[in-house]
Computed example of a mutant assay.
Amino acid sequence: MTRSWFRFWWYWLIIVTCGVIFFSFSLIIAPDFMQIFFDAIFFPASSTHTIFNEVASSYIKFLYGLLGAVMMGWSVALLYILLKPFCRQEDEAWYAMTASIVVWFIIDSSFSISTGFWQNAVLNMIFLLFFMIPLAATYQDFKK
């Protein structure tokens, strides 16, 4: 692949990773807004989510913050990989990115489906595609 195509896919990965960082940060600083977002995904035709008491709502906000912190830490590590070894086309960077995304997708989506929240697995599929398209496109650039 030409260097300009590699840079296109590399920028794509940086943008997607920064998007995940922004999403993660939103879970921390705007849990009420994110609750509305997730309610629309998980409870579109139901008012089940409105019956949470104050303690349950506080716990959900805590879990959103915890999830956001973990996702942010993971995304910052991915961003570092992209900015340094991936940019230098070091084989380990491509494998680290790909393994991290695949492991997250399998575990998160399997858990989501097994607990009845298939909608999250659909959301995961969108994120998977945003990452895997450029990773697949750059695979040959890492073969030496």
Rank of each mutant, 00 (worst) to 15 (best):
A56Q: 15
F52W: 14
M34P: 14
F43D: 11
S47V: 02
A40E: 13
S47Y: 03
Y59T: 08
I60F: 01
Y64L: 09
I51Q: 15
S58P: 03
T50K: 04
S46K: 06
F62M: 11
P31S: 01
K61Y: 12
S57A: 06
E54N: 15
E54T: 03
Y64V: 00
A40K: 14
F38T: 02
A45V: 00
F62A: 11
F42S: 12
A45W: 10
I36T: 03
I60T: 05
F42V: 06
M34F: 01
A45N: 12
A56N: 13
F33C: 07
F52K: 14
S57R: 06
E54L: 12
N53L: 01
F43C: 06
H49L: 02
A56H: 14
E54D: 15
F42M: 09
I51K: 15
P44H: 07
Y59R: 12
T50Y: 06
D39C: 01
P44V: 09
I41K: 15
F62D: 10
F43K: 09
A40S: 15
I36C: 01
F33L: 06
Q35E: 07
F38H: 07
A40M: 13
F33Q: 14
F52N: 15
N53T: 01
D39E: 11
H49Y: 04
I51L: 15
Y64I: 02
F62N: 12
N53A: 03
D32A: 10
D39K: 04
F33W: 12
Y59F: 10
F62V: 13
F38E: 05
F62G: 09
K61T: 07
F62H: 10
H49P: 02
P31G: 03
P44S: 03
F52R: 15
Q35Y: 05
P44Y: 08
K61C: 10
S57V: 02
T48N: 02
Y64K: 05
A40H: 14
A45H: 10
K61G: 09
S47W: 00
P31K: 03
F37L: 06
H49A: 09
Y64D: 00
K61R: 10
F33S: 07
Y64W: 03
D32G: 11
D39G: 04
Y64P: 00
N53F: 03
F37E: 06
D39R: 06
S57M: 03
F43S: 12
S46E: 06
I51W: 14
F37A: 03
D39L: 00
N53V: 05
P31H: 01
